[in-house]
Design a protein around this nucleic acid. Structure first.
Length: 429
RNA sequence: GGAGGUGUGCCGGAGCGGCCGAACGGACUUCACUGCUAAUGAAGGGUCCGGUUAACCCCGGACCGGGGGUUCGAAUCCCCCCACCUCCGCCA
């Protein structure tokens, strides 16, 4: 949810952001006029209400005929108060629904345009030259199956398409990777968390997901609960309606959870293997910090992601996502895309978003502000950010990039301590 | 699943339908006093919205788990929901 005061003071900033997102900029003016209508309605209601309260005091003190007379007089006022209140509530609702439709204004420097208009900021490492090494790389599923790491067929048998079993070295590899990520997060001062994966509609909506219309969300209608596509949802909801103390710096949480996605719009896309699945695990960084610190924190999250990718010894590139592909909440988003040899392309492995105060405003998460002189001051919304430390999808990149001509897979060195020192995964069939 | 109970400010805890934004404790902040700490005394507090303002102040409104309702008027009465507690049943 955007800051309406800011929008009214700097409408051009919001119009420009809407243009970059390739969205309707007239929304900005709709919000402004709805806000005026609302304020007028509130003022009308409140002055009537004040009158009614004053009358109420008289009624309380009066008695007998005097009281009856006052009651007769105030009945009409009561009606007018009710009418004005209803009008005020309606204007409020109209305003809020418009306000909720305005996406977070983008940061300066974010490329304009849609999905394909991203900027490549950097490329780290370089893809292996398999031709020079004298063999054609296998794809991750072929590798995984020969290693006994993934069973897609039985996943489909028990649960349907896009479900799978991780088993053997696949299961171990994922656990090792998560543990390594958790250790890195711990060293950086994060608080580890394992989060609920079913949340109430208010929590889902608070994070910016549209429960009614989002086809990506699994819903349990009978219980009015929603399966989360990322632990971000629960962690963002964790501090809803709270006032935080961030005086000693950002609050950083490393959340592990299983994630559920319907992948409704992607029939026929990435159907092979575990690249795009309905259920996977993810270790997520989540940060609550002061608004002015969010851009710097965003850089830190990106650095921690890259640190993990480096430890996995994966070639990747860093991408600045274009405005139209940011979603409602993010003012900026960096993806790290790992090289996938079988596809000869880069695929998303991490994604980090700076949601500034957008998410927190909706979730009503604030911090207490201390004035420059150290005296008391009011509250203000915090900023929230998130970023990926590891996901099941990484197995794709790890297996493919570290495969060897004989079908075995070399274990990245940093991961070995988490696998009992194992250096190579050997095919079992 | 069944029966009952509770939900008030940072915490504890009162609260006849009007004089309750809310008694009384504690915590906290400031001031006073004491050689320091402690103790004591005094004073002060929340959040949100609107008006006004450069900003503060100030004025008005809302908020007593959440949402509806009754009433001229609701923390107080009624209904629904949520959370927690106790007992019974069921179950990993």
């Amino acid at each position: 949810m955007i800051d309406t005061k800011d929008l009214i003071e700097h409408p051009e900033k919001y119009r420009a952001s809407q243009r970059a997102r390739q969205e309707d900029e007239s929304l900005v003016d709709l919000v402004i006029s709805a806000q005026q209508t609302r304020n007028e309605a509130i003022a009308r209601f409140e002055s009537l209400r004040a009158e009614q309260k004053a009358f109420g005091k008289q009624v309380a003190q009066a008695s007998g005929e005097e009281k009856d007379r006052l009651l007769a007089e105030v009945k009409d006022l009561s009606q007018r108060v009710k009418t004005a209140e209803a009008a005020s509530n309606e204007a409020e609702e109209t305003f809020r629904s418009l306000q909720r439709r305005v996406p977070n204004p983008i940061h300066e420097g974010v490329p304009a345009g849609g999905e394909d208009d991203f900027d490549v900021l950097r490329t780290e490492g370089s893809p292996r030259d398999f031709a020079a090494e004298g063999f054609t790389p296998k794809d991750h599923l072929e590798l995984a199956e020969s290693l006994g790491a993934v069973d897609m067929e039985r996943g489909a048998k028990t649960s349907g398409a896009r479900f799978y079993f991780l088993q053997g070295v696949g299961a171990r590899l994922e656990l090792a990777m998560m543990q390594m990520g958790m250790d890195q997060a711990l060293a950086a001062g994060f608080t580890p968390m394992i989060t609920p994966t079913l949340v109430r509609p208010e929590t889902m909506q608070g994070t910016g997901f549209d429960v009614e219309h989002d086809d990506e969300i699994y819903r349990l209608e009978r219980d009015d609960l929603y399966l989360t596509g990322t632990s971000e949802v629960a962690i963002a909801g964790y501090h809803a309606d709270e006032i935080l103390d961030l005086s000693s710096g950002p609050s950083r949480i490393a959340g592990w959870s299983t994630c559920y996605r319907r992948e409704a719009g992607s029939h026929g896309k990435d159907t092979r293997g575990i690249l795009r699945v309905h259920q996977f695990n993810k270790l997520e960084m989540f940060v609550y910090c002061s608004a002015e610190d969010s851009a710097a924190e965003h850089e830190r999250l990106l650095a921690w992601e890259e640190q993990m990718l480096a430890k996995m010894e994966l070639p990747y590139r860093v991408v600045d996502i274009a405005a139209g592909d940011l979603g409602m909440s993010a003012a900026r988003k960096f993806d790290c895309e790992g090289w996938v040899p079988s596809q000869e392309t880069y695929r998303e492995l991490t994604s980090t978003s700076d949601c500034t105060t957008f998410q927190a405003r909706r979730l009503n998460i604030r911090e207490r502000r201390t004035a420059d002189d150290g005296a008391k001051a009011g509250t203000r919304p915090v900023a929230t950010l998130n970023g990926t430390l590891a996901t099941t999808r990484w197995l794709v990149a790890i297996l493919e990039n570290h495969q060897q001509a004989d079908g075995s897979v070399r274990v990245p060195e940093a991961l070995r301590p988490y696998l009992g020192g194992q250096e190579v995964f050997e095919p079992i069939r």
